[in-house]
Computed example of a mutant assay.
Amino acid sequence: MTGLALVLTEPRARFRDLLAAEWCKVWSLRSTGWSLLLGVLTVVAFNVGQAWDRYRYWPTYDPAARAGYVRDGMALWDAFTGNAAMVMLLAAAAMGAVTVTGEYGSGLIRTTFAAVPARRSLMAAKVLVVAGVTTGFGAVAAGGSFFATQAILSVHGIGLSIGHPGALRVVVASALLAPVSALAGMALGTLLRSGAATIVANVVLLLLVPAVTSEKRHWSAVLAHVQPQKAWQRLVKTVDWPEPFPWTVGGAWLVYAVWAVAAAAVTVLAVQRRDQ
């Protein structure tokens, strides 16, 4: 018919479609499953190694040391160690970073943005998928570590249950360290767009900065208290040792939340006018 034109317009992608696409994209990489599996095994191995060492040398402890260990709930310190937290932090940050830098490195990001012009929605979907995957990773690693270590310690009657005061907080704080770190890695990857540069930035920001800060001076304590690693240390602490500048458990949870929200916002907003 003359005078009439048939205009075909592609329907806008629904957000659940973007979630499904990003979910498939993450799991289409063979390295994803292996990285998660090796990450969990490494984290659990560090913690089980600490618990086994405690089990092995427990008979050599004097009565005062044994009483102090039980009184202070030190079994929770063995449930998730600092070394394990460092491994989880770096592994999760790398997972988050590669979901962004991998696409920029291969050039796939141009195709992705061409197919989905709604960049913010696309990146929001990517953020949710990565947060969900790494939360599961953290939950398996933290929960597995807790139950494995306490089973070992229970041979000597010093293991604790998940209902012990502070035990659940240790598990949850350790599990959530993974998505917080992953979102930070995503934000850095979105800004730097280079895998190598992002890995270096992750190490500097998430490990070196907390390592060089001290809680002996006020300005340094303030800087330390806004770091995810330091927040994790506060959350898993079972004894309130005297400190020059103490801070609260609520403050540590707030640090987790602020880092997660800020990192997600950077990831979503930084791509609006940048293709490469």
Score class of each variant (00 low, 15 high):
A187K: 05
A75R: 15
V171S: 04
P210D: 08
V100M: 06
V200H: 02
M186C: 03
G157T: 07
G73P: 07
V204Y: 11
K126F: 01
V133C: 08
A91M: 11
L160P: 06
A93I: 08
G105F: 04
V116W: 09
A173T: 06
H164L: 05
M74Y: 12
G157L: 14
A125I: 03
G136W: 12
A211P: 05
P165Q: 12
E103S: 14
L192G: 03
G163N: 07
T112Y: 08
T198G: 11
L192V: 14
T149L: 09
F146I: 09
V172D: 00
A131D: 04
L176R: 13
I158D: 03
G105M: 11
F147T: 05
G96F: 04
E103N: 13
A142T: 05
R120P: 01
G195R: 14
L122Q: 11
F137Y: 15
L183V: 01
T112Q: 05
N83C: 08
V209C: 07
A79H: 04
G96V: 05
R193P: 02
L168S: 03
G107K: 00
V209A: 15
N202A: 12
M186F: 00
A141N: 02
I199V: 15
M186G: 00
G102D: 12
A148K: 08
A173E: 00
F137G: 01
A84D: 01
A91I: 14
I158H: 02
S181E: 00
A114C: 09
L191V: 10
G159H: 09
G82D: 07
T81P: 06
T135E: 01
A148V: 10
A92G: 02
V100R: 01
L191Y: 03
S106C: 01
L206H: 09
W77E: 06
A92E: 00
A139P: 15
L205M: 14
T99A: 13
V209Y: 12
G159E: 01
A197R: 15
T111K: 12
L191M: 06
R193Q: 04
A115P: 09
I152N: 04
A151C: 07
R120A: 13
V209I: 15
S194W: 08
N202F: 12
L108G: 12
Y104G: 11
S174H: 06
A85C: 10
V204F: 10
A84W: 08
L89Y: 03
A173K: 00
L191H: 12
A84I: 08
A197Y: 15
Q150H: 13
T101Q: 05
V133L: 03
A118I: 15
V200R: 03
G144V: 05
A85Y: 08
L176K: 13
A167D: 02
R193W: 04
V87L: 15
A142L: 07
V203E: 09
A167G: 01
T190A: 09
G138T: 02
V130Q: 03
V171L: 08
V209T: 14
P117Q: 02
V180I: 07
V155H: 14
M95E: 02
V127E: 12
A91W: 10
T198A: 10
R119Q: 08
